[in-house]
């Protein structure tokens, strides 16, 4: 069977959990095996994972308030062993990334992180992921009986295929954590960059932090998350968690606006998996146009407010 760890940060499932279950269900169907979802700690209505294809939901009840990869991986690996999981799926999120390796070692299983396609099962278990920051795709073969995968966000949209299922409680006492969480600060109100479907990003063409109002206005109207190029974060114009690219956050939204960004190869490395790229730049020779689907060659200070107005009009009419 396929075991999917469904993340429930602060007791809530996010889209990532539904994506992982959808993916697990598809793999299960291909193998002719059921997909079981595992929830650790609190989760509002864990049974809803059935809607995305889990035939069963098991929930480890216990004091699991803070994420700790040592404890969570122990729970996941022991459930996987007990239930005889052949494939274990986690998200390629900050917690998923620290779980994957530990689960793999515990289960003596081969792992591939950040997969974005369905595995093929004929002649060995093979699955693909992007490598060289999206400049190439590698197909891996996992040779061990048990396989562990982390699923790249925005690769498999959640598909509602079933109905709520009953939740089976597992009584597991959480062992004492060796890592103490002292504080958590998240930007409220917006979707975090790695999960965002729509991103408005700006670079050094903005001239200074005081000009970001037009970027925020556009992002608000579109419902997008804001991002920036590296020099912008390095000079403190924008918070460093907005930095996308090879040495920043790698993203793959449905729509990426690159405004006043030249399109250096290290920047492209983090964004070239975006489905649609719109570039606004006053330099017709800017390399970014080569990676773009739509381009506007003009002064961003004229075009961006005009684009915001056009979106407002569109939203009012649709």
């Amino acid at each position: 069977m396929v075991l999917v760890y469904a993340e429930s940060p602060k007791g809530q499932f996010k889209k990532a959990a539904f994506e992982a279950v959808t993916y697990g269900k598809k793999i299960g169907d291909a193998m002719g095996k059921p997909c079981v979802a595992l929830v650790i700690g609190n989760a509002e209505n864990a049974g809803q994972l059935g809607v995305y294809g889990a035939s069963q939901v098991v929930q480890a009840n216990g004091a699991f308030e803070n994420f700790d990869s040592q404890i969570f991986s122990e729970v996941i690996a022991s459930v996987a062993k007990q239930m005889g999981a052949e494939v274990v799926v986690v998200n390629h999120s900050s917690s998923g990334k620290s779980l994957l390796g530990r689960i793999a070692v515990k289960l003596e299983a081969g792992s591939v992180s950040g997969v974005n396609t369905m595995p093929t099962l004929d002649g060995g278990f093979k699955v693909k992921k992007n490598v060289f920051s999206g400049k190439a795709i590698a197909q891996y073969e996992i040779k061990t009986p048990v396989k562990v995968l982390s699923l790249m966000g925005n690769s498999f949209p959640p598909v509602a295929s079933g109905a709520d299922v009953a939740v089976q409680a597992l009584d597991i006492t959480a062992p004492a954590a060796r890592i103490t969480v002292k504080a958590v600060e998240t930007v409220d109100g917006t979707v975090p960059l790695p999960e965002a479907e729509l991103v408005v990003s700006a670079g050094r063409g903005m001239k200074g932090p005081e000009n970001w109002g037009i970027i925020e206005d556009l992002a608000n109207v579109v419902g997008a998350t804001t991002a920036c190029s590296r020099p912008v974060a390095d000079t403190g114009w924008r918070p460093h968690h907005e930095h996308v690219g090879q040495t920043g956050v790698a993203i793959r939204p449905n729509l990426y606006f690159a405004i006043g960004i030249s399109g250096a190869i290290q920047h492209l490395a983090g964004v070239n998996s975006s489905k649609v790229i719109v570039v606004i730049n006053k330099d017709p020779e800017a390399p970014f146009f080569k990676a773009a689907d739509y381009g506007v060659c003009a002064d961003l200070f004229d075009v961006v407010p005009r684009l915001t107005e056009a979106f407002k009009k569109f939203k009012a009419e649709n």
């Binding site: 793999a104 003596e108 299983a109 081969g110 792992s111 591939v112 093979k126 693909k128 992007n130 490598v131 999206g134 400049k135 190439a136 795709i137 590698a138 197909q139 891996y140 073969e141 996992i142 040779k143 061990t144 070239n272 998996s273």
Partner: peptide
Amino acid sequence: DPAVVVSYDLP
């Protein structure tokens, strides 16, 4: 090695 690259593609 429990998992190895068997082939590459370009996007």
